[in-house]
Design a protein around this nucleic acid. Structure first.
Length: 357
DNA sequence: TCTGGGGTCCTAGGACCC
DNA sequence: TCTGGGGTCCTAGGACCC
């Protein structure tokens, strides 16, 4: 069985845990927009992404807590310590959620195990965690959604058999607006509408091969149940949006600040970046990126900043009249190479001679 | 329905190699 | 006479997630 453990209203719950004034009342965490709303605030109609100004105007009594990133990181680390006590097979989904493979560890009582995890998180970290259980990651994820707030839902085989055909395609984890629009256009709305369709059928509807395969496997009930253990992170980045501008000094200053912020979060990593990517978003919503090498592997802000400034003109942001509303940088981190002995042995790759006749 | 910021994974085309 | 097959790496851009 796969469990999906998901902390409820994570940022807000941490603030409510740490400050009694926030408990039991509508409150939000955020800076310019709502990053997370307490369940009391959600009951009023407040949701993540809502501009804080709007919240203050419409609900003056709602308390606003500033974002405390370190507190959430610490809570997240303790949460994952709890998860890993129950199984080493833990796949993080984000700071506040994870898939756990508890096959062979639940003594036949998944619900009991789910409750035990919730109790440990509550007792040791002070946070409410909802848990869903299912045969696949999709089922576990849907179950935890249903379990919220502060509950458990187990989707056993019988329930899955009844529920799966009726799942709405736009409720599926991994199906976003673009894919749903394609399916919708083809008059497909629920999983049973996929029955009998092949990968090629879905490719002809414009889905990518990966997405088409995923849809076919969801219809067949053979979707992903594999826990992927986390590797080192693949990149760090920082972006900043601002009111539309066309001023070069502004754009360059924000870009350099973004470089600094991204590099600052790299301090606990020994890997040295070798490339970087500069992103620009225009006021018409179009986003462009330029990638390029660093002159040397380094975390020196001066060198990385200079490289970023060098890539900036290649985004073409000054070519037309459009204004810029966001700039930022992404720094890919080199993967630890499993083996590095490439062509050292010359013709060692047996069978390297294709039929040239 | 795109407010903001941090990510991952996939894809399509080209270069280069055998 | 056009007539091929693999593999890897890189780049630019999308889609999706929380």
């Amino acid at each position: 069985m796969i469990l999906h453990a998901d902390a409820d209203a994570f940022f807000a719950a941490v603030e409510q845990r740490d400050d009694a004034r926030y408990r039991g009342v509508p409150m939000v965490v955020g800076g310019q927009v709502v990053a997370c709303a307490s369940y009391e605030a959600r009951a009023l109609g407040i949701h993540a992404g809502m501009p804080l100004g709007q919240v203050r105007r419409r609900w003056p009594a709602v308390l606003v807590a500033p974002v405390r990133g370190e507190a959430y990181a610490a809570a997240s680390a303790r949460l994952f310590e709890v998860f890993r006590r129950f199984t080493p097979l833990v796949e993080p989904g984000s700071m506040e959620e994870a898939f756990l493979d508890v096959t062979g560890r639940d003594r036949g009582d998944v619900a009991g195990m789910a409750e035990a995890i919730r109790a440990a998180a509550r007792r040791e970290v002070g946070l409410p965690v909802s848990v869903g259980a299912g045969r696949t990651k999709l089922m576990a994820k849907l179950a935890s959604r249903r379990a919220k707030p502060d509950g458990v839902v187990v989707v056993d085989a019988e329930l899955e058999a009844r529920v799966r055909p009726r799942l709405r395609l736009d409720d599926l984890w991994g199906v976003g607006p673009v894919t749903y629009e394609k399916l919708h256009t083809a008059e497909m709305f629920v999983v049973s509408d996929l029955y009998g369709l092949s990968v090629d059928d879905l490719l002809s509807r414009g889905l990518s091969t990966a997405m088409a395969r995923r849809m076919v496997s969801i219809a067949a009930g053979t979707d992903d149940a594999t826990i992927r253990l986390p590797g080192p992170r693949g990149s760090v980045g920082a972006t900043r949006s601002f009111p539309t501008t066309r001023t070069r000094s502004t754009v360059e200053a924000v870009l350099c600040a973004s470089v600094q912020r991204a590099l600052a979060r790299l301090s606990d990593d020994e890997r040295l970046p070798t490339r970087l990517e500069v992103v620009v978003r225009y006021d018409d919503g179009v986003q462009v990126a330029q990638r390029g090498p660093l002159p040397e592997p380094t975390t020196d802000p001066a060198i990385v900043g200079a490289a970023a400034l060098g890539l900036l003109p290649r985004t073409g942001w000054e070519q037309d009249g459009r204004g810029v509303t966001l700039v930022g940088v992404t720094i890919p981190l080199p993967k630890p190479r499993p083996d590095r002995h490439r062509a050292a042995a010359g013709g060692s790759a047996g069978g390297s001679a294709p039929g040239l006749g």
